[in-house]
Design a protein around this nucleic acid. Structure first.
Lengths: 317, 317
DNA sequence: CTGTTAGCGCCTTCAC
DNA sequence: GTGAAGGCGCTAACAG
């Protein structure tokens, strides 16, 4: 790869002039400008970004540490993030990490000058963060200067209101507390019931069961007395599992039981479309990138992102 | 962030000694070694990798440009790649690109000193590659020094042999030519039929239909005369679509028709498990990383990766 | 064993 | 307008 020295030599000017032409390029005689451009072309010269980084003390690289359990969900994050980042001349450096130790070591490796900032996505464990240029997205920890959380209470409330509007007043809820979000979900659930003057039935709620399939089993075993006709689950994966289980018991979806996913909808052939809350990855990415570019106006507490209600009739796009 | 100068000053030694302690650390008096280590600890000093990169002319960054149509497939690639790369102290810089122009511009941005090498994954269009440190994975173009292709002929042959062994002798094939791989698939298909002394029936093969759902429709319309009892499709997504379509026509899977995916198996609740060819992302990543680390022994033509036969009885793990 | 020097490629003063 | 010099943080070669 040719350097600025090669160009300056070939063009018969000094390095400074070459630099001037390629950056601000104001106050350079047209003749030497042309000479530089010609030499650049000839040598196929492109400034070394590493040398520029050393000088500017910033690389334009954003580290993204994915700590999510459900790997398939990361694709959405990554695609949206990369799209927004590259629009701002920033690069996305990807790491996967499954444990706290892995996250910390990844963080160490990325913050030695390589990355200007780091995002941690979906960590379900507490993190001790010495750095101030770390942003947490959908993580269990919320008491951090920069973090984005999904508004789980709002999602649950919206879900219940929708289900009730569809004539479903016996709403079961299965939501293992992977995230620390269960409490918020329950809050939204109760709030919606209250606002609709519906009683809260403890036996319809399963938040700490080891397996959600066992929870559904319990619901089905007591179906006669419980008489539930809607089921709130944590995400699309759960929804799919649950639908299969319901169908195995000859319960039709949504005829007998309407299944609602609190995160991500289900749009697969051969599986009934279900209502769901969907979080716009695009909105999230936009917010993050704006934090990254305008460092000043970061939030102090957690920033909250609300999801959209998607119903089988209101199809996406 | 503190620099090597801060450390040398605090430790009362020269920069060189600090550097020596932190790298080779041989031939340093124990006393000064301790002093350096103490200063490093105190200042929480870590060498700036960018400065090191400038000197060594390598960043340890590998650019990965994903040009796949099916975004969901990329997760597998990325996870396996990142795992292997980070084991070798290499970083994965991610870009998505949908068109030839986007790939080229991404390539430009990454090869200005930022990335040591670049991988392009799943590009379905021809690429003009001036760089010699670019590796193509599962791309349409094969006439490039470094590329990995999946052995589609082998996959189709294996698939047919398996289906025949299961008593399915009327094997339909739906495989739109997205990849330039259709020809190879057909070759493997024919080969297996030949070796099993079965006739080749042209009307069972659909490789250029606009929509594969139309192709299946044709097959179903002529089911009475064609009498097909197995169906080869390109990937798991297709398989899922096709299964739904078959079930809508009251064809049972695999009872009436055994569906086989030529790339990626289907392991979802509520959907019948099907036989498939699966490519080990891990094996692929390992091969790529070995190319990256031992630059000498690169292949000249395309390197070919064969997939594993996964059947519903031989479950993964 | 250790300090000094030079230079990786670039940009930014500061003189001319 | 333009060139020379200095320095970003680090390591390697060369002296001591």
């Amino acid at each position: 790869m040719s350097t600025i020295n090669d160009v300056s030599r070939l063009a018969g000017v000094s390095k400074a002039t070459v630099s001037r032409v390629l950056s601000g390029s104001r106050g350079v005689k047209e003749a030497s400008r042309q000479a530089v451009l010609k030499a650049v072309e000839e040598l196929n010269y492109r400034p070394n970004v590493i040398a520029q980084s050393l000088l500017s003390q910033s690389t334009g690289c954003i580290g993204v540490i994915c700590a999510q359990e459900n790997i398939n969900q990361t694709t959405g994050y990554l695609y949206a993030l990369e799209k927004h980042l590259s629009q701002h001349q920033k690069h996305l450096l990807l790491r996967f990490a499954n444990t706290q130790a892995e996250v910390m070591s990844a963080l160490d490796e990325l913050t030695c000058g390589l990355c200007d900032d780091v995002l941690i996505i979906g960590a379900r464990f507490p993190l001790h963060l010495p750095h101030d240029n770390v942003i947490l997205v959908d993580c269990a920890q919320t008491d951090v200067p920069n973090s984005i959380q999904f508004d789980h209470a709002f999602a649950a409330e919206t879900a219940c209101n929708y289900l009730i509007s569809q004539g479903r007043r016996q709403i079961a809820l299965i939501h293992p507390d992977t995230n620390g979000s269960a409490e918020r979900v329950l809050h939204g659930y109760k709030l919606a019931l209250e606002n609709n003057f519906l009683p809260f039935n403890r036996s319809l709620v399963f938040m700490d069961s080891v397996s959600s399939s066992v929870a559904l089993q319990e619901l089905l075993n007591n179906a006669a007395t419980l008489n539930f006709n809607a089921l709130l689950v944590a995400d699309e994966q759960e929804a799919q599992r649950v639908i299969a289980q319901l169908q195995a018991f000859n319960k039709s979806v949504p005829g007998d039981i309407m299944v609602f996913s609190l995160a991500g909808s289900l749009q697969l052939p051969g599986i009934p479309a279900i209502p769901a809350i969907e979080y716009s990855m695009d909105a999230m990415a936009a917010r993050i990138v704006s934090w990254l570019t305008e460092k000043t106006q970061r939030v102090l507490g957690a920033s909250v992102l609300r999801g959209d209600l998607i119903t089988p009739t209101i199809r996406k796009r």
